[in-house]
Design a protein around this nucleic acid. Structure first.
Lengths: 144, 144
DNA sequence: CTATTTGTTCAGTGTTTACTGAACATTCAG
DNA sequence: CTGAATGTTCAGTAAACACTGAACAAATAG
């Protein structure tokens, strides 16, 4: 599934295991063993997942090893990641419109639409995320 | 930009040109020439873009050539594409929860959250898209 | 029917990518 | 200090991918 959305397969395998592992925090070595992968690949991919904000590194007092676990709000982080892309597309459309400022509006219609929908998403997705967080909080209070 | 979101570079180059070309519809040959790419690659990538719903093939009466142009609502198509992915993630979480039905809820918390947020997105993204379409229609009526 | 234009398929090539395993760096225990 | 455990970096490899160009197929004009 991670491969399908353009991420390294091994990052998906790590994330997948962290979704169900008990305890939720797993060491580099434990990951390498359960996934039958090299330490190098684990090291690279945990760094990658941390950079995306999907997992975090945690320490256990008196234990020198690093542990990894899925971050709270990991999925919201993906939205933030996506917003960066959307912003890039919006800016690209803006640059195009700028370069074509002398052309008739009708000629720029496609670029304008690209700009407008990305602006729309940039405005709405954070609101959607907020609503999700609120809904979550409500549920937790209700003890669901 | 297309490469960044995991699509073939050439598909992005074609789409980019179709965003600004005049006229909006361009033949296979015209694309090959302006992008300095092989006919084979154009043929493959137009098929790819059509499959995504981003462009469409159009005919001009009395002209044997195929022309391509950006589809109306191309960007909404991307949302639909994304919904397929989100649905797949939701189903994956469901399958996990199913397999773990005997485990305590606390152990399944991470999977449950994955499931819930994807359900949320599956419910909300179509609504967002509808709102966008309505806003668009309003603007057009107002002649903006 | 033949020649030309247009489009598709596919083998081959070069590039990119993901992963491994080894070398290296760091931290700590004894 | 030495040695063991842990983590990172990196060269090398195997697989995947994007693209080209040529061969092929289909459609039309003359």
């Amino acid at each position: 599934m991670f491969e399908l959305v353009g991420m390294p397969r091994m990052s998906g395998r790590i994330f997948g295991w962290l979704l169900i592992s008990e305890p939720p925090q797993q060491s580099n070595n434990a990951l390498a063993e359960v996934l039958q992968a090299s330490k190098g690949s684990i090291s690279t991919m945990t760094r990658f997942l941390i950079q995306l904000g999907l997992i975090e590194r945690v320490s256990i007092p008196g234990d020198r090893r690093d542990y990894f676990q899925i971050k709270d709000h990991a999925w919201s982080q993906l939205t933030k990641q996506r917003l960066v892309q959307i912003g890039a597309f919006r800016k690209l459309a803006e640059r195009g419109l700028d370069l074509m400022s002398a052309y008739p509006p009708q000629h720029k219609r496609r670029l304008q639409e690209m700009h407008d929908i990305h602006s729309f998403w940039e405005r709405e997705l954070p609101l959607l995320d907020e609503r999700w967080e609120q809904e979550q909080n409500k549920r937790r209070l209700e003890g669901i």
